[in-house]
Design a binder for these strands. Structure first.
Length: 430
RNA sequence: GUGGCGGUAGCUCAAUUGGUAGAGUCCCAGAUUGUGAUUCUGGCUGUUGUGGGUUCGAGUCCCAUCCGUCACCCCA
């Protein structure tokens, strides 16, 4: 690997061997979204830097040190490769006045970019899939999102290795009140604080609650709780969400220390977490962000949504042993000789007209080597054409899997022999 | 951004105290010159991640750098 022309660090090529798993996932996803009435939104990968600063928050790690930001030298504008999808989605909804006639259920998927140190389940270009329900106020959409994600885990066979953590952040006033109490509390226990905690004391005191440092555990446990600051409306909203989960029989754990990293959340926040992926165990996360639309210049509209890390989710699928079979053609077209090669091109088209998946052998070679390729391709049949067959418009059909003798027949008859009309196995992955 | 471990053939891995770089697999060809998992025979592939240094001599020791990996931080 001395070639200097390599992929950028933390950005991966998706090779043919892995593509079937992605395709399986995407196909399943589309059906699932349709079942809930969500519609796709595609936005540019590049946005004005100001969008993310405004939406995510100036003092977050993402904005401070993880964004791919550069100046477009042609016009001097500051551009940023999107680090997440919500900001763009909301921006587009406002820009195209999508909310003028009520709430909208939207979804998006695609690559996101964050300049972090690569690690399992964390890459500099990674893929997120997410949904945003814009313009819906009540707790019913929060619940819908939790029900639909729970269904997705069921569809994927992952229910046993993912669990739900839930919290409520309340409104801006209660968060501000809690923040003051928290800072005062931590200052009173400054002797116990580690370096990280001291650094975060004023920038992001909520994060201190998340510390994994064992020497701080007791002190953190006794810290003022956000839950105690929630006002009546926030409590009612939270109760309704919990009630919805109970009604649906979905288990959850209240995690008072669950804090989302982006500034725009309020009330409901949640994470679906697995312990099978090492340190990056959050597979799906989201919550409510009632202030964001107005914050980005739209007419105020409540909203909630979530995003999932596709690499993490697929990593989990691989971990539990889900592996779609590699796609195999119905027919491998062996052809030896000049006349045979010409006839084979036509024969391939005829077979495909009948709905068969056909791989044409290319690049010449003898019967033996071509038969080896036919076997390796996984095809059910080898359709063999030598100059003998080509001269009379016939082909030899040889079953490669299971029983059956090789038969030499007219091309039209080969269509039947190769099982056209029977639903081809290769169109459904499972 | 910080720290631990690692980098030898396309892939999985060997190589005593520094002494000429190997095996399996894969691929290619042949074993009745028109026929596939098997078996047998033969063959191909490497600037040992990169660049310096020590040495008569470095895959092996030292430094730097890149990449990977795990964790921290953070997050999907």
């Amino acid at each position: 690997m001395s070639n200097p022309l390599r992929a950028v660090r933390g950005m991966n090529d998706l090779l043919p061997a892995e593509a079937p798993l992605w395709q399986y996932f995407e196909t399943l996803l589309h059906g699932w979204l349709k079942a809930y009435g969500y519609r796709e939104m595609r936005t540019p990968i590049l946005e004005h830097t100001a969008l993310f600063k405004r939406a995510i928050g100036e003092v977050t790690d993402i904005v401070e040190k993880e964004m791919y930001t550069f100046v477009d030298e042609l016009n001097g504008e500051s551009m940023t490769l999107r680090p997440e999808g919500t900001a763009s989605c909301v921006r587009a909804a406002i820009e195209h006045t999508l909310l003028f006639d009520g709430g909208k259920r939207l979804w998006y998927a695609g690559p996101m970019f964050r300049h972090e140190r690569p690690q399992k389940g964390r890459y500099r270009q990674f893929h997120q899939f997410g949904i945003e329900a814009l313009g819906f106020a009540g707790p019913d959409l929060d619940i819908e999102h939790l029900l639909m994600t729970a269904r997705l885990w069921r569809l994927l066979g992952l229910s046993d290795c993912i669990h739900l953590e839930l919290n409520s952040l309340g409104g801006a006033e209660s968060r501000a009140r809690h923040r003051e109490k928290l800072i005062a509390y931590f200052q009173a226990h400054e002797a116990v604080l580690d370096e990280d905690a001291k650094r975060r004391l004023h920038s992001n005191p909520l994060r201190i609650l998340d510390s994994k440092n064992p020497t701080m555990q007791a002190m953190v446990e006794a810290a003022p709780r956000l839950m105690d600051e929630l006002d009546e409306a926030a409590l009612a909203h939270f109760d309704a969400v919990k009630q919805g989960l109970d009604d649906a029989g979905i288990a959850y754990k209240i995690n008072p220390r669950l804090v989302r990293g982006l500034d725009y959340y309020n009330d409901t926040v949640f994470e679906w977490v697995t312990d099978r992926l090492g340190a990056q165990g959050t597979v799906c996360a989201g919550g409510r962000y009632d202030g964001l639309v107005a914050q980005l210049g739209g007419k105020p509209a409540p909203a909630c949504g979530f995003a999932m890390g596709v690499e993490r989710l697929l990593g989990l699928l691989a971990e539990v042993g889900v592996a779609p079979p590699a796609a195999a053609p119905d027919v491998y077209l062996v052809n030896v000789g000049l006349a045979a090669s010409r006839f084979a091109l036509q024969a391939g088209e005829t077979l495909r007209d009948a709905g068969l998946d056909v791989v044409l052998h290319g690049g010449g070679g003898g019967f033996k080597s071509q038969m080896k390729k036919a076997d390796a391709s996984g095809a059910r049949y080898a359709v063999i054409i030598g100059d003998d067959e080509a001269s009379v418009g016939e082909v030899s059909v040889k079953p490669l899997r299971g029983e059956g003798e090789q038969q030499r027949v007219a091309l039209v008859a080969a269509v039947e022999l190769c099982g056209a009309g029977v639903s081809p196995a290769s169109t459904d992955l499972f």
